[in-house]
Amino acid sequence: MTHKPNYLPERLALLSDLNAAQYVTEGLLNGKEDVPAIALSKIVEPLPYDGARAALAPVRELVDDAMCEYRDEKPTKADAWLAPRLHATLRLNRREAADRRLWNFLALGVAPDYVVWRFLPEPNGKEKSGEAPKVAYRRFRGAHYTQAFARLWWMAELFRNGSDYRPVARACAIQDMINTVLRLDVIDHRPTAQAMVRLLDRGTVTTGREVNALAGAVNASAATLMYDVVAPDVERDGRPVQEWVEAAETAGPVPRRMLPEGPDEEQAPEGSVEALADYFTELLVDAPVRGRPATEDIGD
């Protein structure tokens, strides 16, 4: 298996797509090779910010703890634990999080071993002869909903309810929420994201199959319906995130047992969440649950 890098710089850094590409080798994807850490450290670019948020060690420790905690379980289980804690450790604003170079660096320069651990499929006998199971390229370098770390951070960002990470943990427990729902534009509206989690809470939706049906119905209905109007969110205020980012200097390591606390933003209005949850429930009554088999608990 791919190992933890033998050299870890003190600071996080940025790794451009072009430079990242040459290190995502076949051997790495197969989990058979390591990333040459020192060579990599020479081609990275510095972060645009400094201070506690730029420290590499807390991130690496977090990943180590995740792999340790879930060493006897399916790696997918780690997502619900890691997502809120990664989010609270990095303390990024969205502008920073939209920089793919940071995620490239985390996947190759900080924890390629985690990516392999989490995404290398177990041999299931269906591989073509001579082909070993391998990690999908997009787990190292890819869109926000496929890249190993970006997907966790964005799950936490889009499903947290103000400072409350519980909905994040709830959502990450079903892989289809990450694989299907995270890529939908509709969840950029906070009450919509919360309403979908609310259906998990209520037990209205339990399986991955049902999540996919729900996602399809919500997405189709949003083509004509403006959820933002029927279930308004509070006015956007960017200051709590800014203050939370600044508070990184005095914050300690994120708690391992309890959930951390996110930015002190106003929560999505309960009335809006409830109204949408009720509406989505109605949608689900009509929506035939079909499509490909549920992907729940399947690594990829």
Binding site: R183, D185, V186, N219, A220, A222, A223
Partner: peptide
């Protein structure tokens, strides 16, 4: 096809 907010249309 069915119209959707984002992604492929069924």
């Amino acid at each position: 096809k069915l119209d959707v907010r984002s992604g492929p249309k069924p």
